[in-house]
């Protein structure tokens, strides 16, 4: 049942040019960074090494937002096609139907982020960070999918919303330039905690306010709680 369901979703995505582009967007971006960054460094004779962790954080968050948009647009399509009415009169509940989708969203976002980081291959990342940080960031993916559906009722509006929700990754990036107490001004931003944990893991010689296990769990709990709150609003909006 689950496998069949994913096959139908995949067919829907691949038959839509915009969705299939978003599906591979961060992988393409990672490939560009892999060759683009060393090329730029050589050309301008300037090392970006101090910023590698930021490049990786950007790619991680773009993976989450892009896959969130894939799922978000897929839900928008279903709303256009009035599929949720039919689910409503089936033995499958809305929560199960959507829950499955968000599970796909998380897994796909996780795989995409890890693979993207491996493609970039700019710097050594400790294995625990490579496996754990994408968990937190990928949990944000479903928030992004729901966010697209809050303010948009069709794909054109959805595209605008996706760009707006893309802006949300700018703040954590800015926060990465701070390592003193000022960084906590960005603490309200859900991905702040994950990118800080990544920074700690990648920059063992820099002083941070907290350790990996100080930042990381806060991020995971924060994003999980955010999912629950946003889901409640999403559910109201989508079923009317």
């Amino acid at each position: 049942m689950a496998i069949k369901y994913i096959m139908y979703e995949l067919k829907k995505w691949l038959r839509d040019p915009m969705i299939s582009f978003l599906l591979f967007y961060s992988l393409i971006l990672a490939a560009v960074a892999r060759f683009g960054v060393p090329f730029a460094e050589e050309k301008f004779n300037f090392s970006l090494e101090a910023y590698y962790h930021i490049v990786i954080a950007v790619i991680l968050m773009i993976s989450a937002v892009a896959i969130g948009a894939v799922i978000g647009f897929s839900i928008l399509d279903d709303r256009d096609d009035k599929i949720l009415y039919a689910v409503e009169v089936s033995p499958v509940s809305f929560d199960v139907f959507m829950g499955f989708r968000f599970a796909v969203c998380f897994i796909l976002s996780y795989i995409t982020s890890v693979v993207s980081i491996l493609i970039v291959n700019l710097a050594e990342i400790p294995l625990y960070a490579l496996l754990l940080v994408p968990v937190s960031v990928s949990l944000f993916s479903s928030v992004s999918a729901m966010f697209v559906n809050f303010f948009a009722s069709n794909k054109v509006e959805g595209f605008a919303m996706m760009k707006a929700s893309g802006m949300i990754i700018v703040l954590p990036i800015v926060s990465m330039f701070f390592t003193d107490f000022k960084e906590f001004f960005f603490g309200f931003e859900p991905n702040f905690w994950a990118v800080k944990a990544l920074s700690v893991a990648m920059l063992p010689n820099t002083d941070f306010n907290l350790g990996f296990w100080g930042y990381y769990p806060v991020g995971v709990i924060f994003v999980l709680a955010l999912n629950i709150v946003v889901y409640k609003i999403f559910k109201k909006k989508v079923i009317n």
Binding site: M1, K4, Y8, K11, K12, R15, D81, I83, V92
Partner: peptide
């Protein structure tokens, strides 16, 4: 209430699986 991007057969199979 049909997936416009799926075929008639894919639609019916999807719903039957529910």
């Amino acid at each position: 209430v049909l997936f416009t991007k799926l075929t008639a057969m894919e639609n019916l199979k999807f719903y039957r699986d529910l």
